[in-house]
Design a protein around this nucleic acid. Sequence first.
DNA 1: GAAATATTGTTCGGGACCAAATCCTTGATG
DNA 2: CATCAAGGATTTGGTCCCGAACAATATTTC
Lengths: 175, 175
Amino acid sequence: MREHHTEMTGHHTLRSTEEAVGDRLGGLNLDFEAMWAVSNIYRASTAIRNHLEQTVLRDTGLTWTGFVVMWVVWIWGESETRHVAKEAGIAKGTLTGVLKTLESHRYVRRAPNPADRRRVMVTLTSSGERLMRTLFPQFNQEEAFVVKELDSQRRRALAASLRVVVQHLEGTVRP
Amino acid sequence: MREHHTEMTGHHTLRSTEEAVGDRLGGLNLDFEAMWAVSNIYRASTAIRNHLEQTVLRDTGLTWTGFVVMWVVWIWGESETRHVAKEAGIAKGTLTGVLKTLESHRYVRRAPNPADRRRVMVTLTSSGERLMRTLFPQFNQEEAFVVKELDSQRRRALAASLRVVVQHLEGTVRP
DNA sequence: GAAATATTGTTCGGGACCAAATCCTTGATG
DNA sequence: CATCAAGGATTTGGTCCCGAACAATATTTC
């Protein structure tokens, strides 16, 4: 692993962070490969989210989570809240609040399920549908920008490795 | 008690989500490789964070962000708040609140910089230091669990690809 | 069938989170 | 020196976020 400084800006880049970690933890018996893999997943995720918020979402009035929730409903069609929360990766209590916000913008609508009155269904309004149709291609364009520096093979390998991680974690039953 | 919500959806695994996307967006002209790479980064990041919160952080009273902030100060030593916020990937206003929480647990301490009284330095208390020394090895052990299903070469490739993404995004100067 | 048990969405309390406004301090400019 | 601009952290307002407690509804058990 050869790491060389391109520049000494005095600011803290990714490279110098990893060096600081090496300095601080070099003596300990740690799994550094696992550490770099995991910490870079988190780091990339933050950077990507920031980037997409700043570009595509900037003037829409939508938050990241609001967008994700609408995306789920858009992909799956009318859905139960339970399902939406799971797919969006948020707690059901959180979803209640997010839906309240999205409803106030008239992007989604709640509808009680007549067959089971505990359940609530969520649908996009036509205005929400329209928003997703214009927003999603822009979103995908920025996704392409994000992985621009990786060739096709690496993109597929990246996605494949991450799928393995996710399925490993989700497949692990917790007591 | 079986699920009556039906038929073709069944359970919602990673695979079936990707299938739903294919059904819904198959006709559009999109960069699917980019989409899978990016969405799996986010998905993995969420799954990992949940896992670590449920295991290592569960009984510590620390939030994810609180841990990350302490980690940064632990690695870098006494630091300026500005630097900590950047490394932790949160806004400076957020850091103020997080530090207030951590200070109330006596894990960190604020100290005004005498040379420039606008600046504030953050250090770990000895109790915070002790906490990191016991917590971090556990954390690393769970990181190893997270990537258990990937061989060494894939772990390195994963980290390397993510570094490329992060540096590409952070290197992109925004107007 | 009534009572016990489970499931579902909402509410609530305490944090996390951001962008913008604010408050202090420093450095520059006249 | 006095003023003003720039650079720090904090506060503020609105949203997100979780877990636990809750009320309503559905299912199982006896």
